[in-house]
Design a protein around this nucleic acid. Sequence first.
DNA 1: TAGTGGTCTAGACCACCCT
DNA 2: GGGTGGTCTAGACCACTAA
Lengths: 235, 235
Amino acid sequence: MDIPRYRKIQNMLKSKIQQGSYGVGDHLPSENQLCSIFNITRTTARKALEELQKEGFIERIKGKGSIVRERRKSLGLLNVKGFSEAVGRNVSTIFLQEPALRPWITGFPFPLTDSERQSPCIHFERLRTVGEDPVMLENNWFSGKTLPGFLQSGFEEDSFFKTLSKKYMIEIKGSEQELKALPANEKVSRLLKVKPSGPVLQISIRFTTCNPEFFIYSELICNTMKYPIGNRYFL
Amino acid sequence: MDIPRYRKIQNMLKSKIQQGSYGVGDHLPSENQLCSIFNITRTTARKALEELQKEGFIERIKGKGSIVRERRKSLGLLNVKGFSEAVGRNVSTIFLQEPALRPWITGFPFPLTDSERQSPCIHFERLRTVGEDPVMLENNWFSGKTLPGFLQSGFEEDSFFKTLSKKYMIEIKGSEQELKALPANEKVSRLLKVKPSGPVLQISIRFTTCNPEFFIYSELICNTMKYPIGNRYFL
DNA sequence: TAGTGGTCTAGACCACCCT
DNA sequence: GGGTGGTCTAGACCACTAA
């Protein structure tokens, strides 16, 4: 395998947290316990836990241990992950435009690379709802050359990011975001059930991936009145 | 000293970047060079560089080196830092309410601890401008018991966070944020020169510090039309 | 081929927390 | 006092980059 050992352990612990095997406030195995369980050194065990801390799943306290954090109810952790990892369960998604080859839009706040400009992009548009409430209008664009067969096959587990990871081995490495409060235009107002010119939050994101020439561009327009956007950061 | 060696090196490199000794695209010393310069092992050198990467100052590329990143023009890196570290130089600050003991406000999205509720808080309000443009209305609250003498003495280098660090040894360890697009009320509209009910971005933040019982609560209201809020995140 | 960052081992000492 | 995470040493092998 070329997946590092710390990442396997990190992913295993993450699934256990997401599935509820570890609840909020629970202690994960300590560094030394991980060492003996997996036959690794503390450096490797630490790395797995540090990554989980960076992702916001746990808090690490000297003398105490690694403790599962409370996940706030807001549309959280927009930093890197997609929608479904962020909120609870009663989330649904409607495709307004199915994935297809389309020209790049202009006016996006991040510059495209030369190689991206040379050919059209794959684009799709989705409306995300929580219960009965439409909450977010989401557009995604990326170079059409990098993901062969993307238009033919569907999403894995309805998740764009899981599809990238499982089918194309593309992992998100980071993101740049730009936040703007805007008045809703007619379309946004209708779809998100905001009154005309009512305030909506526009989040423009450029995701960087393990392929240094492949970026994903997203624009999220959010009705934050009922579901504010949550966000955590650790040093 | 109780400041770890990797942090000293990290801070030294950070100052050099901020002062321009290392420009965008320049290579920082490699891990091995740092080892021999400072007589440390690679673990320590790596830690210093990894922290700079987390803060968004450098990018680390296998086979190439640690390269100073471009800083975007938007009000960047709101994740953890204050205002002055984010934008360029022509930033000014007006106190609308000087620091004083005041009762806690209600309706803040983060719950206060019992110990915080028991006594009034220190609060101040500032208006931040870039050039001629008022850009952000900032309110800060924190427990009045933890920072003796705060009301008597001024800010170091006009920076709240530097004052915390230098006078009280309080370092920011992380933050939780909540983002909302709101219509401007009369006061905000007047101060930020937004039309009445025009959209503004409200960022509510709870900063966690090295003192686990001391939090700083901030509310930023931003006119994002001309200066969007920028944000970076790395895994 | 030499240099870079990424991963990993096998130890060590420390401050801090809890009992 | 025993366990936890935080820091650090002194090595090693690897994949990747650039000359």
